[in-house]
Nucleic acid binder design. Structure first.
Lengths: 154, 154
DNA sequence: GTTCCTGCAAAATTTTTGCATCAGT
DNA sequence: ACTGATGCAAAAATTTTGCAGGAAC
């Protein structure tokens, strides 16, 4: 039930993102590609600040926060990145894998960790609900709040 | 399927909130109670700024933003209020009705309106998933993004 | 060479905190 | 009266914007 993203999928996403950026008539700038490459290597979602910090830890020039935000905005606009609001102050971002790896998030109130979750039955019920609604559903997010196994003390 | 909150439920919530505040050893201060009364009258969620603006439009003293935030924090801590992050910049808040009126949100990308939604099948699937998980689920949020009927132009 | 991208700095937004004063119990 | 709540102001945190210079195509 843990949504796992394979190394293959990650590389695929980075290539897909690069192609989509190019197809949109946009350029492969340094900061933008650094963000793509960093996100491609992630399992879970990152905040803009976390993206910047991670890039700062890497060799090479560190992009400014503004460029990180602009890159994330652009990628979100191209549906290459999914923006996630988990209740903290800062929004988080993660790669949107075209085919599989559709997942949601469980936030532990104890340690703050974010777990990826996925469940076919829930997705099915959600889609059936969407079909019955007078609302065209483009995307959906589910966030669970609670305690992870490690933080559930007896 | 529209989650409707009756006048009765609203009054109940305000009374319940007042009792819970008192039971927690907290006081019925002016700003705090103004926020409770305002939220009790709402159908949908409001941001802190919207709460403050609505209170400013009412006769009587207008509480400061800090007091609004503190009231909302306190109420959220007592599980009287539910904090909702719908993807905008500001968090929103709505009364947490003890028994019924468990609902989620659909955000229209066209007009920005927020619709309340609820679906038993989805809730059931979600609870079944929670039972299978190594994670104690205390609360969950579902947010749909898309277009409302009015904004789906042909 | 043209146009977009980037970085810095400044600003706008949202939320939190310190402290003196006021109000509820 | 005692203690917690409030308001103001300042600060912190997050995100956006303007503009000059640099990079991609």
């Amino acid at each position: 039930m843990h949504a796992v993203t394979s190394t293959r999928e990650r590389a695929d996403w980075a290539r897909h993102a690069e192609a989509a950026i190019s197809a949109a008539g946009l350029r492969a700038g340094g900061a933008r590609m650094a963000v793509v490459d960093l996100l491609a290597a992630q399992d879970c979602c990152l905040s803009a600040q976390e993206v910047r910090d991670a890039l700062a830890a890497l060799p090479g020039a560190t992009p400014g926060m503004a460029s990180v935000y602009r890159a994330l905005d652009t990628l979100t606009g191209l549906h290459l990145v999914h923006r996630v609001d988990l209740g903290g102050q800062a929004a988080k971002y993660e790669p949107a894998h075209p085919g599989g790896d559709h997942h949601h998030h469980a936030v532990c109130g104890g340690c703050g960790r974010v777990l990826a979750i996925s469940d076919d039955a829930v997705e099915r019920a959600l889609h059936e609900m969407a079909d019955r609604m007078a609302f065209r559903v483009d995307a959906h997010d589910i966030t669970l709040h609670g305690r992870c196994a490690r933080c559930t003390a007896p």
